[in-house]
């Protein structure tokens, strides 16, 4: 349904996005994941025909977005980071206005309005002026305007931004409901938000597409580089440090490095009163690590075998990228 080829966007001489290429099938719910400034909003604004790409092509249902933007706009509902609402209007009048702009006739609006108000739980607020609504309700109004014309493609840019925990849960539930009737694109820099609502992830970093696939596929990729994390009690570290501060830290590293199967030991990180060592290894060697730590006279407070966790994949992907935009 959506085909993106070599898409790029430059602001002046600075590259904000691309070149990226991907396809999204009908009915999919795809999450754009990336840190702030990764190019998520730029990508979504281009897909929503709010921004012209500098290079490359975007087609929706085979229609070129640059050549025929209005045809594409008819098929898209877009919720930007800030809901595009008119504060002086009531919710109902605003939705009627938004639907009319998308070419809906009065009869179609009359029929669609109750469905949208029910879906977004705005029935009780439909006659309220938008200026009187909380941020959470405004966000719901933003979603409502995006779906009023029943678009095939729904684009939500950071839909839970600024919401409180209860509102976030409600918004996730709303997105799950929307998945049934729309192809949905969501952007976020918050991993749980994406992983709980999306079928597939596109990971952006420094404007480039640095990962793509389902959660299982990305986790499988992570499995190719498993690591063991060992945490040594701060109390022991402090005793050792009191005597020989440099060699104590190095001593643990040396012991762990000699273990069979360990290919590398990263620089230890002092965190929450403990030193965390990250070992790169090709199999689960927790038993050997625990024996080495205990035999060395240190207290082992945590031992994890990190294998295929999505969050680690995300961190590895975004931290592994390089900013080639300038």
């Amino acid at each position: 349904m959506i085909r993106v080829e070599n898409l790029s966007k430059y602001y002046g001489g600075t590259r904000a996005l691309g070149p990226v290429s991907f396809e999204i099938a009908d009915g999919e719910t795809v999450g754009f994941l990336g840190l702030n400034g990764a190019g998520k909003t730029t990508a979504l604004r281009i897909l929503a025909c709010d921004l012209r790409p500098s290079a490359g092509s975007v087609s929706v249902d085979g229609i070129d977005a640059v050549a025929s933007p209005h045809e594409v706009r008819k098929r898209i509902g877009f919720l930007p980071e800030n809901p595009p609402v008119y504060a002086d209007m009531t919710v109902r009048d605003y939705l009627r206005f938004a639907g009319s702009l998308r070419g809906m006739k009065r009869a179609d609006l009359d029929k669609r309005m109750p469905e949208v108000l029910a879906l977004t739980h705005l029935e009780d607020r439909q006659d309220h002026a938008i200026t009187t609504l909380s941020h959470g309700f405004r966000q719901r109004v933003g979603v409502a305007q995006a779906i009023i014309h029943a678009p095939k493609l729904l684009i939500l840019d950071e839909p839970t931004r600024g919401l409180d925990p209860v509102q976030i849960v409600e918004m996730r539930s709303l997105i799950r409901d929307l998945k049934q009737n729309h192809t949905v694109l969501i952007s976020s820099h918050i991993l749980p938000e994406i992983s709980q609502t999306c079928d597939r992830l596109l990971v952006l970093g420094y404007g480039a597409l640095i990962g793509s696939g389902t959660e299982a596929e990305l986790s499988a990729a992570e499995a190719a580089a498993p690591r063991t994390e060992a945490e040594v009690a701060a109390e022991i570290r402090q005793i050792v440090v009191a005597i020989q501060p440099v060699t104590a830290r190095a001593a643990v590293t040396a012991v762990l490095s000699k273990l069979d199967g360990v290919s590398a030991v990263a620089e230890p990180i002092e965190q929450a009163g403990a030193l965390t060592f990250t070992l790169s290894c090709n199999r689960d060697i927790r038993a050997a690590v625990s024996r080495a730590i205990v035999n060395g006279g240190w207290d082992l407070v945590r031992l994890d075998y990190v294998h295929g966790e999505l969050e680690n994949t995300f961190i590895r992907l975004v931290s592994g990228g390089t900013d080639a935009r300038n």
């Binding site: 706009r73 877009f78 595009p84 702009l101």
Partner: peptide, 8 residues
């Protein structure tokens, strides 16, 4: 944004 992303 509503106007810009509508077919008007």
């Amino acid at each position: 944004v509503l106007l810009n992303t509508s077919p008007v």
